[in-house]
Amino acid sequence: MRLLTGLSFFILFVSGCAIEPWVQPYERANLADPIMSFSRDSVSSSYRKHVFEAREGARGGEGSQGGGCGCN
């Protein structure tokens, strides 16, 4: 019970002290540009990854996230 009470105070503390974004939403125009994407065209990038992995010993570790800031 003491643990849960402490956890409740911790959650309230963290939510009350949320990190202030240092890049505001109105400053994200460049990040939202399609050229700022780690993987603009997934159909193409997955094929290219397949070409390399079939001919090299290394594999994985390149992530699957897309690019951009997701603020559109």
Binding site: E27, R28, G63
Partner: peptide
């Protein structure tokens, strides 16, 4: 998002 012009991504796969 590091700055308004800079994105960084770290990935690990086992």
């Amino acid at each position: 998002v590091v700055t308004k012009n800079f994105l960084l991504s770290l990935n690990f796969e086992s």
